[in-house]
Nucleic acid binder design. Structure first.
Lengths: 123, 123
DNA sequence: TTTCTCCTCAACCAAGTGGTTGACAACGGG
DNA sequence: CCCGTTGTCAACCACTTGGTTGAGGAGAAA
């Protein structure tokens, strides 16, 4: 597992249990015990999951006596969203260009200027 | 690794090499060899990466003689985006409510969360 | 103080991952 | 037809991962 943050975030969310915990934390902060309750695994295992989410920057923990309340750091989601949107859009534009070319080949559409359709967008 | 699609997609993108390949494929389809070229690993390793992307539904392969051109299936991104946005928004709403409560307790009139610069840049 | 609760650390284990090399199937060009 | 190109499959290896159990620290509670 590469050690850059984006990789860690994706890897952290690749586990359904951890996604579930994130869903739980989106509702409100929770202690380790509260997070562990719904699952049929040891508290230690849940503690490990939290550590993974923590390392990814998705969750932070504070102190309250013996308890360690977990808090969702939702800003990290933007990191993923940005990456995803970038390439989704890029691919989408490519399909759109292809559509335009196909339409042009069929004479479906008025060609604004023949052969001027490629590589137009400036990032 | 759980076998549901969302898990597979996240896991597939948890590897920088595979994210790189997705970036490459967003520009246009490519053969396995073309995808392997920039990297200092064997073609077999790249073939394995492609298989992972394939199993996640992110990439499809067709036939062209001996070649197996890879094609990016960008719709799968929506699966992730939906999941992410759901909990990001949920968490955001919670912070907003907290802001409101805090403001009310202080008798304040400008509710602003301390560590909460701005919300959705890319939605 | 002693005890109980909440949680983490350490060691261990089975299974999975990302890489390697070697073999080989499929196909086009001589 | 044989040969080079392209890519996958199979076996293997080091390392990681998600789980376990046991030990123990930090605080409240008795």
């Amino acid at each position: 597992m590469a050690d850059d943050q984006l990789s860690r975030v994706f890897a952290a969310l690749a586990d359904p249990t951890r996604r579930d915990m994130v869903a739980r934390l989106a509702v409100g902060d929770a202690t380790v015990g509260e997070l562990a309750d719904p699952y049929d695994v040891s508290v230690q295992a849940v503690s490990k999951h939290i550590r993974v989410l923590n390392d990814a920057g998705l969750v932070s923990q504070s102190r309250d006596a013996q308890r360690r309340p977990c808090h969702l750091e939702a800003e990290v989601f933007d990191l993923m969203t940005k990456w995803i949107e970038r390439y989704r859009q890029q691919a989408q534009e490519r399909y759109d260009r292809l559509d335009a070319v196909l339409a042009e080949m069929r004479g479906d559409e008025q060609p604004t200027h023949p052969g001027n359709r490629e590589q137009g967008a400036a990032s």
